[in-house]
């Protein structure tokens, strides 16, 4: 047990100490590579010092892509729903920088085929904010939208990329869509150990991968936490 405790990330004293507005968002505060961060109940990550909001795996345009490929015509509302939640989060924390951790679009054509209203909406969200698109496996290369297009990004002690790397340190990534079961229900979750943080998928039409899947339990160090989303973000030992 002591080994596990040694490897575990320490929760910071209280979420309230980090930022006055965190309590309102039901966030869970912690430190990673010396930086103080807050996992929001919505599944976004808030970095108060940089006034930066990080979201992962938006998968915008998913229903359009499935229909285009001859699949079902899913309810075409997921892009609106995702952006609505993002807008709400941006307003709640007054973010001045936004990082989208990859798979922001379900594929390149989906990025190019976004309805005009959605493009306008994105432009509106980007106004007055530094906006970075990290490449994902679904959306490699830059897309024709404002903002910086990056393979990965370093800021302070942290590195932001889409897929976690085995030796990553201070690494913030997405890709796996982690989820965990707590009190009989399944919730999207952050996974956190001493060297890395994996964000849950933020997009409305996204599924999840159990934290006990070998892909995740093999990646996360002993003593890792799962921070489950919902009405309030809450940490627990990561189910393996």
């Amino acid at each position: 047990m002591s080994a596990a405790r040694g490897a575990a990330p320490r929760p910071s004293a209280s979420p309230r100490d980090i930022s006055g507005n965190v309590k309102m968002t039901g966030g869970y505060g912690f430190t990673l590579a010396g930086e103080t961060l807050v996992a929001l109940a919505s599944g976004a990550l808030w970095w108060p010092e940089r006034e930066m909001l990080v979201v992962s795996d938006l998968h915008l345009g998913k229903s359009e892509r499935i229909a285009r490929l001859g699949g079902a015509a899913l309810p075409p509302y997921e892009t609106y729903d995702t952006l609505e939640r993002l807008e709400a989060d941006l307003g709640r924390v007054s973010a001045r920088a936004v990082v989208c951790l990859g798979d922001s679009f379900d594929d390149r054509a989906a990025a190019e085929g976004l309805p005009e209203g959605v493009v306008d909406w994105l432009v509106r969200l980007q106004a007055g904010r530094r906006w970075s698109w990290i490449e994902g496996n679904h959306d490699p290369g830059p897309v024709a939208l404002g903002g910086a297009h990056l393979a990965d990004m370093v800021a302070g002690g942290l590195v932001f990329r889409h897929i976690a790397t085995p030796g990553g340190a201070g690494e913030v990534s997405g890709h796996y869509h982690p989820k965990a079961r707590v009190a009989g229900v399944s919730r999207r979750c952050f996974l956190l150990d001493r060297s890395r943080l994996i964000l849950p998928a933020y997009g409305t039409y996204t599924g999840g991968l159990w934290s006990h899947d070998p892909a995740l339990s093999g990646l996360m160090a002993d003593g890792a936490l799962a921070i489950v989303t919902g009405r309030v973000a809450r940490a627990m030992p990561m189910p393996r």
Partner: peptide, 17 residues
């Protein structure tokens, strides 16, 4: 929601966290 809170707290306490 109360149970989620209680269970996560219990699990954290059991893990010494």
């Amino acid at each position: 929601e109360r149970m989620v809170e209680e269970e996560t707290e219990r699990l954290m306490a059991e893990a010494g966290l």
